[in-house]
Design a protein around this nucleic acid. Structure first.
Lengths: 244, 244
DNA sequence: CGCCACTTTGAACCGGCTCAATTAAGGTGG
DNA sequence: CCACCTTAATTGAGCCGGTTCAAAGTGGCG
């Protein structure tokens, strides 16, 4: 079993940069403190400033903010290979909450271990920060979607983005992927009501573009879907981290 | 004239961390290459990957993405003291465009100079990265606003945030600030139509909360405005950069 | 003086919301 | 194995916030 199969993070980074033996070893070391969390119970609460980050290895998490009136906005989802709370470790700036969508497995990364790893292999630091900046680009794209795309395009774009991300870590294929999200998750992420999410999904299904049912997303017509969403994966690829 | 009056960036950072003489000198050095840009002509185009960042000293800029259908979403505004394209320098990830809202003055910062400065005074690196993470928190808050706040609250929140930011660099006061944005800018930033922006502004004015007229924002009733917007400045303050 | 960019207002429309009810799909205790 | 409960998905009906289209007003500037 190659390291890439061990850790989705290693797999993701490897897709963009060739990691040396040393770097792989350092990465593996970061995976030592394994933790599990149950679905629905927050890992970090808004405002609470944590000293630890996590590398998600299995399951999905969402990061969100709750408003005073109780409405919730999901800012991003984390899938295997993604960091949780990386920024809050590096800059003590945690200002949203993390909720596991399903039971998850994650590696706890202490600030010290991370900084040590960065000191030991600066290329790894660059690669990880690159991944973080990619996450940020997704947040920006998300903002654009909510601000300027109608519900259908928004949903299409969202599903395509998720598909791309999962493909990178070996979950799912061009034909589709397993997706544990409820329609409430989709609603809170896309700035829609759950009811309308349901109608949008129905329409996408009936027009033969994509089906989301029983935890599985199936792409029926990628071309038309990309077209509807005006999906341009440039913001996900952007040339990989430049090393040295 | 103190350095703080020279540069809004120095002023902003000084509000959160005491800068040493050396750090002030290094910062001053970063301000050497002065440039001007005229309103309306993009500084960096979407996709184009620039090697330089800028520190904005006077005027306003907006960063935005254009979609295929021509609609535009403004992701953020930069005001004096803010960096332009910091991320694209550090990580070669420019994926949006920058347009000066008015004629601006900015200092060009070459990648090399920035990295040298970071090497010379690591505390400065931390402080600047902290400012960058603050920008990011603003993008997240912006996302929440578009996704889950109605037009009135969205506008109120936006104006309050701008007020806070400007206060920090000595532009404007608790009573209001100069604002060169058109209602089209507001519309593209808030995900609304220009027509509706106009109506929202009228209502805020008529209910005695805030006036936006002839390039000037005047807060009439901060308490009620904060209340309407559910404005919690925590995401702007978050404890300052931790140094050493 | 006349143009141009921006603001303002009205009227009609519609995308997405709310409220409400029904169905489907697990789990759980008995 | 069934009765029950809970959570998620589904669908209908009516409403409303915000949009589009259209037109008029305002102010700065060459």
């Amino acid at each position: 079993m190659t390291p890439a199969e061990h850790s989705p993070l290693i797999r993701k980074l490897s897709a963009f940069v060739a990691l040396s033996e040393v770097e792989l070893a350092v990465l593996a070391r970061l995976h030592r403190r394994r933790r599990t969390f149950v679905a629905g119970r927050d890992i970090v609460h808004q405002g609470q400033s944590e000293q630890t980050a996590y590398i998600l290895s299995t399951g999905w998490v969402c990061s969100y903010k709750i408003q005073a009136d109780g409405t919730r906005q999901i800012v991003d989802f984390q899938v295997p290979g993604d960091f949780l709370g990386l920024r809050s470790v590096l800059l003590r700036t945690s200002d949203h909450s993390f909720e596991p969508v399903v039971d998850i497995e994650a590696a706890e990364v202490l600030t010290k271990d991370l900084l040590d790893a960065f000191a030991e292999t600066p290329r790894l630091a660059t690669a990880i920060l690159w991944a973080a900046s990619r996450d940020e680009a997704m947040v920006v794209e998300h903002l654009v979607g909510i601000g300027r795309r109608d519900a259908d395009a928004r949903m299409a774009h969202f599903l395509l983005e998720l598909g791309s991300r999962l493909l990178l870590v070996g979950l799912g294929s061009k034909a589709g992927f397993e997706c544990p999200l409820t329609q409430y998750h989709l609603a809170d992420a896309l700035g829609l009501s759950a009811v309308h999410v349901n109608r949008v999904l129905r329409q996408l299904r009936e027009t033969g573009l994509v089906t989301f049912r029983e935890g599985h997303v199936t792409f029926h017509d990628l071309d038309r879907l990309v077209d509807l969403a005006e999906f341009d994966p440039a913001y996900l690829d952007h040339s990989g981290p430049l090393l040295n």
